[in-house]
Design a protein around this nucleic acid. Structure first.
Lengths: 217, 217
DNA sequence: CCGAAATCTGAACGCCGTCAAGATTTTCCC
DNA sequence: GGGAAAATCTTGACGGCGTTCAGATTTCGG
């Protein structure tokens, strides 16, 4: 009675906080055992409501996924944005990459949905989704513009994005498990990820040929 | 009559080539519209067979996916292996990366399954799957060993793998669509991919500090 | 040639997403 | 305050899915 709605067998007809509860259940499910286990019915079950209830908040399953993906891109952008602006470009780029990978490992469910097959920011009718995705990429790009000639900014940005995205994906899917141990090293993944980013920064700095006077765009 | 079994309304009770037909239908489906559209029933339908037939060849859906994934890793390994061994290490690594991305774009269905969430080479009971995955990684690693000190081989290998994997994934999912056009360039993706690999090779060669005399491992 | 193994069918089960119609609660305006 | 309108949730149904199982059909080895 004191707390109105939270526990599973709720007292009132209305849930009171269903949208948030469904989102939480969804990310929980994906983090537990992959997005294949994510079903609207199971989310509804965990929230203690009927199977048809989610439709009123998200329309359909894709709606829920796009909502989570939007949160994911916004998380990503704000994490990357809040890296220290005082750092030299290569160091800040490295910090951004670290933020990217850390986000993936911290919120695996959200990350997997955000970059899952079903999410197509370029095709979706969801305007916030596209905006959030472009904002994250823009952050990376404007930082790259400080260390590369204008003609190389795009390819360098895509290169860095690809690397951190690939690293995050491989780590999250534990696809480096057998490979690493098969190579004789039993280092934990957090360490391996850091070493890879070290190497990336080193390679990045080794190609310093830009003119920092021309901010380019 | 002349050809025994191929067309949809087959004449005999037995299909004759069902396993291959199901694999073909599966990759076709995923290439068409994502792995969400891949269903055993639809594969069976396209092969002109009852919904329960696939179970006798693959056990269940995961069995079919693991079979495709094994083919994918073997494709990948043989594509990478058949790059020119006469090239200098950095150039051959670049060729391997190009083979990786090209494989993804040429066989999108197979690639998506191979690196999809459901495939866990490190956990699967499928021995061929794990072997094929390790072989592909080993190729990359032994080539990296020619240009890096032993202590840096692992991280450099993971870095390269991450980059090409991320690039292939982002290209395949058309996730660079809005970003590229939003950046003012309308270059086709094949070109962008090549430029990114150019940049990667450049960065790789800029950090030449290894002793090629010590093959490491 | 015949029995065993391989291959495929048909029917069923439970789960899924989704929709439509109705019940219940809240909100909001008069 | 009170009552219509909107928001929220339930119930029941539909078709599609993966999977299982008993049985029909074909192939193959001895």
């Amino acid at each position: 009675m004191s707390s109105p709605a939270r526990p599973k067998p709720r007292a009132s007809y209305h849930h009171g906080n269903l949208k948030a509860a469904l989102l939480a259940a969804a990310e929980e499910l994906i983090a537990e055992s992959g997005s294949a286990q994510l079903t609207l019915r199971e989310c509804a079950r965990r929230a203690g409501v009927s199977p048809a209830a989610p439709a009123h908040h998200f329309g359909n399953l894709l709606g829920l996924l796009e909502h989570i993906a939007t949160l994911g891109f916004e998380d990503l952008a704000s994490d990357m944005e809040s890296t220290q602006t005082s750092l030299p470009p290569a160091a800040r780029l490295r910090a951004m990459g670290e933020a990217y990978v850390r986000f993936a490992l911290r919120s695996p469910g959200r990350f997997r949905v955000t970059f899952g097959e079903k999410i197509r920011p370029s095709e979706s009718a969801n305007e916030k989704l596209r905006a959030a995705a472009e904002r994250a990429f823009g952050l990376l790009e404007s930082e790259v513009a400080r260390i590369r000639k204008p003609a190389q900014v795009l390819q360098q940005t895509v290169l860095l994005w690809s690397t951190v995205h690939g690293l995050a994906t491989l780590l999250l899917d534990q696809r480096l498990n057998t490979l690493v141990s098969a190579s004789g090293s039993g280092a934990p993944f957090e360490t391996l990820g850091r070493e890879v980013l070290d190497q990336l920064q080193r390679m990045c700095e080794a190609v310093q040929e830009a003119d920092p006077e021309e901010p380019a765009v």
